[in-house]
């Protein structure tokens, strides 16, 4: 409960603002998400350089051991420590997720803003191309793109980014179209602003909150795609620890009753996803009232 929700006056009466309870659950969700995400990012950034352990170290005598104090997440079928493998896997998956989401957002924003700002036949042409690309199932298209390259991190990033800028382009274009019809753009045109200036000074800043939100929500989605591609054996090379590769390797032992090699990598996908969704939800609630007061609509 923050200071803003509760006020105490001189007589000691506690005044609670209306909606305080709802706000506190919101705060709880926000804080839980922030802590989980911070823990994830810290683990990914700090564990590999600080902990001098070899994630590839094989110990065939200790293969497929259930979780124990020595191996909190257990070991896999060649005796590698799963906690360490999960952290390294998350590092790769997060890198792919962030890089792909950033690339997709930059491409999508550029295309959407150009289509919206130029309008006319450029807009119609570009949006038909977007419709055409999005009519192909994007996992299939992604598989097609990775299949053209050797397995590695960057083909996976390219595959996810090139199939996911479409929705950002649509969001940005729609926002630009609605902004463009407002009198302050007319005023800028009348004040001698060039097309470029109108776009970068007045239109793009207006769509950036939406684009940033789309980028954040895309990070976990890109991680799933990496996992899906790796699970299919098309993504990262099999010796690289990635969450998709870990689950793929663990398939066989799941049928034999060993649940830990699949459960923990799975959790490592789900937890950052929920944390990002929680943060993005709080962010959306925060930017909406501000936008409403700014636009006075």
């Amino acid at each position: 409960m923050s200071m803003a929700d509760v006020a105490t006056d001189k007589t000691g009466t506690v005044w609670r603002s209306r909606g305080g309870d709802r706000r506190s659950t919101r705060t709880l969700r926000l804080r839980t998400s922030a802590v989980l995400l911070a823990a994830t990012v810290l683990a990914v950034l700090l564990v590999p350089p600080l902990v001098q352990l070899d994630q590839q170290a094989v110990d065939l005598a200790a293969k497929l051991e259930p979780p124990s104090p020595a191996h909190p997440f257990g070991t896999d079928d060649v005796g590698r420590d799963l906690l360490l493998r999960c952290v390294y896997g998350l590092r790769v998956s997060l890198l792919v997720g962030v890089a792909a989401a950033l690339t997709a957002t930059v491409v999508g924003t550029a295309v959407g803003a150009a289509a919206g700002a130029l309008g006319g036949w450029v807009d119609r042409g570009v949006m038909r191309v977007v419709d055409t690309i999005s009519s192909v199932p994007h996992l299939l298209l992604g598989i097609f793109i990775v299949a053209m390259f050797r397995p590695g991190v960057w083909p996976v990033v390219a595959s996810v980014a090139l199939t996911h800028w479409l929705s950002t382009a649509r969001i940005v274009r729609a926002e630009v179209l609605s902004l463009r019809a407002r009198p302050h753009i007319d005023a800028a045109v009348s004040g001698g602003a060039s097309r470029w200036r109108v776009t970068v000074r007045h239109l793009l800043p207006g769509v950036l909150p939406q684009a940033a939100l789309a980028a954040v929500l895309m990070v976990p989605h890109a991680m799933w795609h990496e996992s899906a591609l790796s699970f299919l054996g098309l993504g990262l090379p099999t010796h690289t620890a990635s969450l998709g590769n870990l689950i793929q390797e663990a398939r066989g032992s799941l049928l034999a009753g060993q649940w830990w090699p699949t459960l923990f990598p799975g959790l490592f996908i789900i937890v950052p996803t929920l944390a990002v969704a929680g943060l993005a939800g709080a962010w959306r609630e925060r930017i909406n009232p501000r936008r409403r007061s700014e636009l006075m609509l």
Binding site: R182, P183, H184, D186, A187, A188, R201, H202, E294, L295, M296
Partner: peptide
């Protein structure tokens, strides 16, 4: 313009 609110960049 008529609507000052909409004719200035927020």
């Amino acid at each position: 313009f008529q609507q000052a609110r909409l004719s200035a960049d927020p």
